[in-house]
Structure formats: structure tokens, C-alpha cells
């Protein structure tokens, strides 16, 4: 049981490290124009010169995958951080307000949750010119809802613990209890929510790009590449679809694996807290 866990930890950490190194250093080591068209070498099958082959306008698929993953990771991380900050603030404020204010905030959260994220996201990107930041704003603004719920529930359950009573009896102010006892207790949960949000945000970015609403079509993005490759796949040229797909799936699984390890690290202590 421990051995499989260790394997999972090292696999996740190794994969995430490899992805980060690749998206940081490959563009530095191969400063080529990943958007340059080379019709003389279009749709070449994987070979030594082009390990992932070339696409329908002769661009190297491996390089475009790396550049695309870079954009996706950037969007994913920034959007996840933004949504976590919004969600934590709203959830904590809602729990702190209590009563009518709390009910009002949570009903607003319910209303937003009832609309599919992607639909709301499309609505937001449609208001801007295509680019990276509209996608970040769209994903960030649609994904804080679950974090707000988690943080609110956590604060509510923490607030009635005896250690808060002990702090009050020790003369702590409301602010001190919030800063010293409640926030540190909520941060691991919020951090976990942020990490889990990264793959989700990457998938949303890809979905928006695939629908033609995300990044400009010439930019290398995993969603754009899969969209572009649809025609060639029908002709039997599988590599422009398969490799971006793998670049989408493997890093997201690795990040999710990392989040799983984190969750296990949080939980044992929690269990011991509740056990007695």
C-alpha cells in the first residue's frame, strides 16, 4: 500500500516537474517561430527530424505542443489562482456575515452554479477580442463557486470548535481568531482546491479554443491544435490530433495526482482530530 503510494507520488511529481521544465526551457533552447508555415514539409509522419510529425501547414507538432502547453498552463494557473482567491474571500465573508447576508450570498452562488460553466464562460469571452486574458477572466470568474462553498462550510464547522471557545476565553478578538486560527485551517483546503482547479481550467481553455472562442487561431494552443487537426484525422493522419491530446491529458492527470497526494497529507491529521 505504501509502495504504490510512493510510486504515485514520484510519478506525479516527476511528470509535473518535466512539464514545467519543458514549457520553460524548450522555447529558450529552440527559439523558433512556432507559427512559421513550411508547406514543403506539411503532414509528415513522425520521424527523427520531427518526432511528433508536422501539421497540415508544415509546423513541427512537438514544438507547437510545448508552446501550446505553455499557454494552457499559464491560463490554467492564473485562472485557478484567481478563482481560488475570489472563492476563499466570498466563502469566508459569507460565513463571517452569517444570517441573512450568508443566505443571500449562497443563493447567488446557487444561481451561478445552475448555469453550465462553459456557457457562462462563452458569454464572458464573447465580450472581448480573442486573446489570453479574456480566457483567464472567463475561467477565473466561472470557477470560484465550488471553492466558496468549500471554504464557507469549513469556516462554519471550524467556528464552533472548542478551540475557538478557548481562544475567546483567552481574550482573542474576532480578527485574531480569524487570522490566527481560522485562516491557517482553511488554507490547505483552499490550496487543494486551487491545484485541482488547474487541470480543470486547462480543459476549459482548450474547450473554448476548440470552439474558436479562445485564443486567436494562429496561436499554438492545445485546443486550437486539436481543432485544426480535425480535417487531417479523417484523412488518416493521426499525429496532429494524438500528440496534443496526450499533452492535454498527461499533465492534467499528473497535477490531479499531486492534488491527491496533498489531500492525503491533509487528511490524517483531520482524522485524528475527529477521532476523539
Amino acid at each position: 500500500m505504501n509502495a504504490t503510494r510512493t510510486v504515485r507520488v514520484y510519478t506525479s511529481v516527476g511528470l509535473v516537474a518535466a512539464v514545467v521544465l519543458a514549457v520553460v526551457f524548450v522555447p529558450l533552447l529552440f527559439p523558433v517561430d512556432e507559427q512559421a508555415v513550411d508547406m514543403a514539409h506539411k503532414l509528415q509522419a513522425p520521424s527523427l527530424a520531427h518526432p511528433f510529425g508536422t501539421d497540415d501547414v508544415g509546423r513541427d507538432v512537438l514544438l507547437r505542443c510545448v508552446y501550446g502547453l505553455r499557454v494552457s498552463l499559464l491560463v490554467g494557473v492564473v485562472a485557478a489562482l484567481a478563482s481560488t482567491v475570489i472563492g476563499t474571500a466570498v466563502g469566508a465573508a459569507s460565513a463571517a456575515a452569517g444570517g441573512r447576508g450568508d443566505r443571500l450570498v449562497m443563493r447567488v452562488v446557487d444561481v451561478f452554479s445552475s448555469v453550465p460553466h462553459l456557457l457562462l464562460g462563452i458569454f464572458i469571452v464573447a465580450m472581448f477580442r480573442p486573446g489570453v486574458w479574456p480566457v483567464v477572466v472567463s475561467v477565473g470568474l466561472t470557477h470560484w463557486l465550488s471553492t466558496a462553498r468549500i471554504v464557507r462550510a469549513e469556516v462554519l464547522s471550524l467556528r464552533s470548535r472548542p478551540f475557538v471557545d478557548a481562544a475567546i476565553s483567552g481574550g482573542a478578538s474576532r480578527l485574531r481568531v480569524a487570522v490566527r486560527h481560522l485562516t491557517p485551517a482553511v488554507l490547505p483546503q483552499a490550496g487543494l482546491a486551487a491545484v485541482l482547479m488547474v487541470p480543470h481550467a486547462i480543459w476549459h481553455e482548450s474547450a473554448l479554443s476548440f470552439l474558436g472562442l479562445g485564443l486567436p487561431t494562429h496561436r499554438a494552443s492545445l485546443g486550437n491544435m486539436i481543432q485544426d487537426a480535425r480535417g487531417t484525422l479523417l484523412a488518416g493522419d493521426w499525429w496532429p490530433t494524438l500528440f496534443p491530446g496526450l499533452f492535454l491529458i498527461v499533465p492534467t492527470l499528473a497535477i490531479a495526482g499531486l492534488a491527491g497526494v496533498w489531500r492525503e497529507r491533509i487528511n490524517p491529521r483531520r482524522r485524528s482530530e475527529l477521532m476523539l
Partner: peptide, 13 residues
């Protein structure tokens, strides 16, 4: 005040 259950009365952090 001293509470019954030290586990829940102590901030685990």
C-alpha cells in the same frame, strides 16, 4: 477554562 477533550480544544497547528 479547561475543556473535556484536549484534541478539539487545541488548535492543531
Amino acid at each position: 477554562v479547561v475543556f473535556q477533550q484536549p484534541r478539539t480544544a487545541a488548535d492543531p497547528r
